[in-house]
Write a protein that binds this DNA or RNA. Structure first.
Lengths: 354, 354
DNA sequence: TTGCTTTCTGATACCGCTACCAATTAGGCT
DNA sequence: AGCCTAATTGGTAGCGGTATCAGAAAGCAA
C-alpha cells in the first residue's frame, strides 16, 4: 500500500498552469482561457487569475502550447535585402516582445522571385505560421499581402510609407517627418537644398520627398529639379547622387538624404572634395540607424523608434491571431508612432557668401 | 456500442513517431532511442527503424520533444554595445536554428555594471534560462562565465579570440586569419604596412595583432611601432588612428584595420587627403560585416561565417543542456570555423615610387 | 540444462497545455 | 417560484515525445 510515487519525472523549475490554477482557486482550463484572451470568462474571475499569474510570474510553456493547440503562435518576420542596422533593431524589439509573450518568432529569408514562385512561397508560408510581420521593402508587395490575406493569415507591415487600407501597419508619418527636417534646414537659413530620394519601390520614399517638396513650397521656396537626385537607399547610390548634386554650378548648401546610409555617402563625397561638413555643406539623414552615429560628423537625422515599432507590430499580430481564432473579424489599423528630429553635428547655417 | 470517436482533434499532417513505429514493427520507444542516437539498440533493429524513418520522411516534433524532455530550452543571448551588423547576423543565425529546434531564444541586454551588480544579474539570469550564448565583448567577461558556470548553466562564447579552457567557444582562428591577410598584402608588394588594433578588452584583438606581427617577421619584415595604432573597433577610433598613420613622414602604403568599421574610417580619411584607394593606399578590414560592402571601394576583408557560428553555438548549448540533464559532464570544446579572405576592391600593389 | 547477469524492448505514465463536451450557475421570462 | 436558455466553469483526453521501470531475449558460467 505504497503511496503512488508522486512525480517520477523531475519537474522543470518553471511555473505551470496548474500552480496558477491552484493559487487562483480555479481550474487550469480557466487560466488557459485567460492567458489566451478568450472573452467568455467572468470579469471577476479573470482578475483573480491575472493576479495569480502576476504573482507567480507565470508564462505559458510555448512547446506545450503548440503541441496541444496545433495553433502555434509562430510569427514570421520576413526579410529580404536586410539593411543590417535596421534589421537588427527590428529583431531586438520583436524578440524582446516575443520572449515576454512566449510566442515564437521565426525569421524567413525572402528572395525576390518571379511572381508565380512568390505566390507559391507565400502559400507555403501561410501553412506554417500564424501571422506575419513585413518590414520594408516587402511591406509594399501586394503579392505577399494578398496571398497571405487570402489564407486568412494576419499581416502587419512595418515602416511602410502609407496606410493602404488592406493591411494593418505600424509606421511613422514620413511626410511630416521630412517636412520637419526641411523646415529645420530652412530655419537655419538654407535656400538651396538638395534632396536624394529613396528607392522608388517603397512608398516611404515618395512620402519623404512629398514632405520635402511641400514644405519647400509652403516656405516660398521653389523646388529646383536640378537639386533632386534619385537614390536607392544604398551608400553607393548616395555617392553618385552626391557627386551629381555637388557638380552643379551653384551647388546646394544643404543636402537632405532619404536615409542615413546615403547621407553618410554625401559626407564622404564632400570630404573628398575638400568641403567641410557642416561648415560648407549641411548634410542630414533619415532613420537614425547605427551609421548616423558611426560616421563623422554625427548626422542630424530623424529617429524612428524601430524597436518599439517592432514590438507593437508583434503585439498587433498576436492580437489579430487571437481574434481570428475567436472568429472575430478586425479592420486593418494604422498605428502611427511619433518620430523625432535628432540634432547632431552635421548641420549648420549655410556659409556666408556663395 | 458506438465505436469510440477516433480522433476528436484534427491531427497535424506530420508523420508521428507512432506511424514510424508501426511501419517498423517496433515500439515508439525504440524509434525514440534510434532518433536520439542512444547506443542500446541492436544493430539490426536500428537499421529497420532507420529505413522506416527514411521512407516516411519522419522528423521528430521539436515541441513534443522539449515538452517531454522537461528540458526548459530557453537560451539567452546576451548583448551589450551591439555593433549592429554583427548582432543582426548573429541573431539571424541563432533564430533560424532556434525555430528549427523549438528552443526559445531570449535576448538579454547587458549594461556594463559594477562587479557586484553584475554578479547578481548573472545569478538572476541563471535562474531563468537553460543556457547562454555570449557574443563579444561579453565573451571575455570572467564574471559572467564564472557565475553562470557555478550555477551549472552551459555557456558558449562566440567569436572570442582564444579558447580559454573553461568555457566552450565557437570562433575562427583570428591569428591565422590576420596572418593570411598580412601575407596577402606582402605578396602584393607592400613593405610598409600600418596596423590598427582592436579594442584591448577583447582577446580577438590581440590575436589579430599577433598574427600580423608574426607574419611580418616570418617574411623578413620588421614591425615598425610607428605603424601600429591602438583602435577600439569604432569608426571614430579608426579615424584618429588613420590620421596618425598617414601623418608619418613615410606613411604606410597599406593599412590593415582590425575590423571593417575602422577600415572604412581609414578609407574616409584617405579620401579626405586626396589619396586614391587602392592606388595610393591599400586598406583592408576584418569581419566582412555590412560596412565592408557599403563603403566605396568595397573592402578586402576576412569573412567570418557569423550566422553559421551562431547556429553552431546554439546547437552546442542545446547539446550541453541535454548532457547536463543526463548527468554527463562534458569538457569545454573549442569549435573552430574556417574563415575566408574576401578579395574586393580596396587593395592593390603599392604605388611605384615612394 | 539450469541459473543468473547483461542487453534490448515495450508498457505506462506523464511533460504543460488546449479542444471538446458536460456540468454548473446565472439570468430572463412566464 | 419554476422552467428554460445563455454564460461560465470544470473534467477528460489527448498533442508527440521521452523517462522510468519491468519484462523478454540473449549470453555465459556452472
Amino acid at each position: 500500500m505504497t503511496a503512488p510515487r508522486r512525480t517520477r519525472r523531475r519537474r522543470g523549475t518553471a511555473v505551470t498552469i496548474h500552480e496558477v490554477a491552484r493559487k487562483a482557486g480555479v481550474s487550469p482550463m480557466t487560466v488557459s482561457r485567460v492567458t489566451n484572451g478568450e472573452d467568455n470568462v467572468r470579469e471577476a474571475t479573470r482578475d483573480i487569475v491575472l493576479r495569480a499569474i502576476r504573482e507567480l510570474n507565470y508564462s505559458p510553456n510555448p512547446a506545450a502550447r503548440s503541441l496541444a493547440g496545433a495553433t502555434g503562435t509562430r510569427i514570421a518576420m520576413i526579410y529580404s535585402n536586410p539593411s543590417s542596422a535596421y534589421l537588427s533593431e527590428l529583431l531586438v524589439g520583436a524578440l524582446d516582445k516575443a520572449s515576454k509573450t512566449a510566442s515564437q518568432l521565426v525569421l524567413e529569408k525572402w528572395d525576390e522571385l518571379k511572381p508565380a514562385a512568390e505566390k507559391a512561397a507565400a502559400r507555403k508560408l501561410a501553412r506554417s505560421v500564424a501571422g506575419v510581420i513585413l518590414p520594408p521593402p516587402l511591406c509594399e508587395s501586394d503579392i505577399i499581402a494578398n496571398e497571405l490575406g487570402a489564407a486568412q493569415i494576419p499581416v502587419i507591415a512595418i515602416a511602410t510609407g502609407r496606410f493602404r487600407g488592406n493591411v494593418s501597419c505600424v509606421r511613422i508619418d514620413d511626410f511630416r517627418a521630412a517636412s520637419e527636417m526641411t523646415a529645420h534646414l530652412i530655419a537655419l537659413g538654407h535656400t538651396r537644398i538638395g534632396f536624394i530620394k529613396g528607392h522608388p519601390n517603397q512608398t516611404a520614399s515618395a512620402q519623404r520627398f512629398a514632405g520635402f517638396e511641400s514644405t519647400l513650397e509652403s516656405h516660398g521656396l521653389q523646388l529646383n529639379p536640378a537639386y533632386v537626385q534619385q537614390g536607392y537607399f544604398t551608400y553607393r547610390s548616395g555617392l553618385d547622387a552626391a557627386e551629381q548634386l555637388l557638380d552643379r554650378k551653384r551647388p546646394p548648401t544643404a543636402i537632405f538624404a532619404s536615409n542615413d546610409d546615403m547621407a553618410s555617402a554625401v559626407v564622404s563625397v564632400a570630404h573628398r572634395r575638400g568641403l567641410d561638413v557642416p561648415k560648407d555643406l549641411s548634410v542630414v539623414g533619415f532613420d537614425d540607424t547605427m551609421t548616423a552615429t558611426t560616421v563623422w560628423p554625427e548626422l542630424t537625422t530623424i529617429r524612428q523608434p524601430i524597436a518599439a515599432m517592432a514590438e507593437a507590430a508583434l503585439n498587433l499580430v498576436l492580437r489579430r491571431v487571437r481574434q481570428k481564432k475567436g472568429g472575430e473579424a478586425a479592420e486593418p489599423v494604422d498605428h502611427l508612432f511619433a518620430h523625432e528630429l535628432i540634432r547632431r553635428a552635421s548641420d549648420a547655417p549655410p556659409p556666408r557668401e556663395s
